[in-house]
Design a protein around this nucleic acid. Sequence first.
DNA 1: CTGTTAGCGCGTTCAT
DNA 2: ATGAACGCGCTAACAG
Lengths: 337, 337
Amino acid sequence: MVTIKDIAKDTGFSVTTVSRALNGYSDVNEETRAIIRASAQKLQYSPNMLAQSLVTKKSKIIGLLVTDLKRESVKDNFVFEVLCGVSEYVTTVDYEMILISTTTSRQRNKTFSQVVGERNLDGVIIQGLKKDDPYLTEAVASDLPTVLIDIPIENSTTGYVTSDQVDSVKTVIKYLSRLGHKKIAFMNGHKHAYVSEIRFKAYQESLSEIGIPYDDNLLFYGDFEEEKAYQTAFNFLLARQEVSAIFCASDIMALGVLQAARELRIRVPEDLSIIGFDNILLTRYVSPSISTVAQNPFELGTVASKLVLDIINQKSSEHHQILKNKLIIRESSGPSN
Amino acid sequence: MVTIKDIAKDTGFSVTTVSRALNGYSDVNEETRAIIRASAQKLQYSPNMLAQSLVTKKSKIIGLLVTDLKRESVKDNFVFEVLCGVSEYVTTVDYEMILISTTTSRQRNKTFSQVVGERNLDGVIIQGLKKDDPYLTEAVASDLPTVLIDIPIENSTTGYVTSDQVDSVKTVIKYLSRLGHKKIAFMNGHKHAYVSEIRFKAYQESLSEIGIPYDDNLLFYGDFEEEKAYQTAFNFLLARQEVSAIFCASDIMALGVLQAARELRIRVPEDLSIIGFDNILLTRYVSPSISTVAQNPFELGTVASKLVLDIINQKSSEHHQILKNKLIIRESSGPSN
DNA sequence: CTGTTAGCGCGTTCAT
DNA sequence: ATGAACGCGCTAACAG
């Protein structure tokens, strides 16, 4: 490890001067700066961020906080895409990303401030925490620059990025309605997620806008899991044969519904239209391919990063951004008959 | 930020005693330790890892070094699975993972030691670097605990984890041979990857073991990319109609080959058997589903983490591990006719 | 058993 | 324009 001390020794200047020269202070002779720079280059000096952080209180590290990233998470590249987005943006501005995978139980052992304080994180991006997770409340209450993904809360140090959930849902429902569907079921995720809440409300609104009465019996939950979606859809489809379309709050669940339909010999899209949400890779490859609302998680990641850095650098005051989604029509949806 | 100083003030002991009490030193009165612990709990103290690292020279951070994680990387969850594995293991032993995404060009601006030194990384896991990437050489030469994924180099501070590439290839070739295939082509990745080298050699060996002469014309490259694979396969299949089976060094490429076959109206598996490598999610969902060699990248990740920590803690001396793969037969392969 | 002193590598007054 | 001295939060050597 070569330190500024080494450079000081090498050049004959004091560590102070070296520090200032390297940090671009104006009160240093350009000639000495050149000498010091050359020496740094020669010795392959690189600042010790730890020491730097310790004194400046800035770590140049952004934490990406996600819920329990485990073996099963793999199927869902949503998180991965967000991560890639964050990683890419953060790299361009010379920050580092640290991945923090937590669970509700682990949040009881260590507070949010502790996690953040331990490594002097400059900012945090939160993805996938449950509505009532302790860290969420703490993060919002704290004055640490925080950006939430898909949770619309904003204050002076908290921002969020999400996509136009309401609009997307309405687009889907109207699309189905135009195809003649009257009995449009909605498979939601679970109640711990903000998006579930929002999408549900949007579903209700959309129906009322097109004059279809909301029916509680057409709402059911798939927990954002393929297996769970499969099971509940199986029973649901048996019981409610009048349903001609199911809108799923995630593609993973749509996959499960598709499977259930297949086993019940319900033809898709002739007898049942299925529409998903997310546009995960698989939707394009399964047969029939699945119509879905395309989100752009990668962009969610880059924008989130941009927003945290804005908050950190106290740039604008608007700390939220809403991305556009797009309905992609594939084989799994068609006219009602 | 509450520091040991605060605890010292709160309890009346010196910072040293606090430090020692909290770090479990034996030379401290159990009673005072209890007092100090209680105070720490009360104040929600959490050690500042930066300061700790600065003096102990240990950061409890493992770097995961990957090549340029960008938008396009998303299709290939291999990296993501490895990452999940690393993240999970590392969390259990109270370490943190930092993701470092680099490119060949960026490696010229900053040396490996600089990257590592900046944050006092305790160890590094390397995945996907090219054979001639500077960081690879530097990492192996350095004395920083390093574990390479799929690159079999070992020394006192370098280990590796990979899967039984040779065995897998042989299994595939023998399987195809048993099905009556004589003209078995091999689509390799690109020459920058170690695995390409190894798999190619294994391909040659397997052929000779079953008495089929190696034919240079049956080897071609798909660069580990779907599009590239599609294009080269298209031309290849046109030119070499005698080929009855193609073994691809990655599923992504198998996807491309499948597409080419489809467009050329070559039936799979009747006219052409296709076998991939990796067992990515899609192989199960496309039609026909793709036979492939199943790797377990998640485990690659956990084992890699375990190995780095072994090296860090100077546990055993064997710093490599080879995982088993498994040939999964699906619809894309069948008897030659 | 406990406190004092020193120092990790760096940025930052405050003199000069 | 430059340097000496101090402190960030912490651990480690040495006394006592």
